[in-house]
Computed example of a mutant assay.
Amino acid sequence: MSEVKLAASVRSEFGKGAARSIRREAKVPAVLYGHGVDPIHLALPAHELGLALRTSNVLLSLDIDGTTELAIPKAVQRDAIKNFLVHVDLLLVKRGEKVTVEVPVQAEGDLAAGGNLLEHVLGTLSVEAEATHLPEAVTVSVEGLEAGASVLAKDITLPAGVTLATDADAVVLQVLAAQAEEPAAEGEATEGAEA
């Protein structure tokens, strides 16, 4: 779990025009909410925030006017074409507090021979963990799995202190049998030879 420190400034202007102005200053508009406090509207440095968001479930340590607050990203909006950050919603967290987050599922190992395919039915698992110890991903071994095999959420070993919030019987990964190519019909082969 990585913790990234960012300097945040409180913003008082809202709306599309204000948001565009903030982005022109190489900052990203954000809202910090949670714990029953009024939402705090912030502007965060775009480059540093973009680097931080490359890590799944990053913990942000925000310096807001001399006060440090911990937050995790809850919703990240990006421009559909240019992929720059448009807006970020942040959830206020406290050390020791348990939160529920989505964690990417990564498969490792080789399937049994035969050209079978591995299907990721769920790309992420919903887990509950302490806010300052969120896992970046969970790894599942698929070594030697045969066609028809599946891995359920309850079969995945989670790091210490992390509990499963997804339905335990949900299929996360399944192995699909390789499809054999159908031979060309005789009529098709004959037409190709005559052409």
Rank of each mutant, 00 (worst) to 15 (best):
P135H: 03
G109F: 07
V28Y: 04
S141I: 08
V142G: 04
V99E: 03
L32W: 06
L117H: 03
G115P: 12
T190L: 15
K154H: 11
A71L: 07
A180V: 12
Q179W: 00
L164C: 10
H133F: 09
E136D: 14
A185C: 03
K94W: 09
H41M: 04
A46D: 07
N83Q: 14
L59S: 01
A185Q: 13
A160C: 02
L118W: 12
D89N: 11
L164I: 10
H133V: 04
L70T: 04
T67H: 12
I22V: 15
E48L: 12
L111V: 05
D110A: 12
K16M: 10
A19T: 03
F84H: 15
E186V: 08
S2V: 03
S61G: 02
E119R: 12
G187A: 15
G115W: 11
Q179H: 07
I40G: 00
G187R: 13
E181A: 15
A26V: 01
V37L: 12
T55W: 01
L111T: 07
A52H: 10
D79C: 02
S150C: 10
L44V: 00
A113T: 12
H133S: 15
E191N: 07
T163M: 04
A185L: 14
Q179I: 10
V121M: 05
A7T: 11
S12L: 12
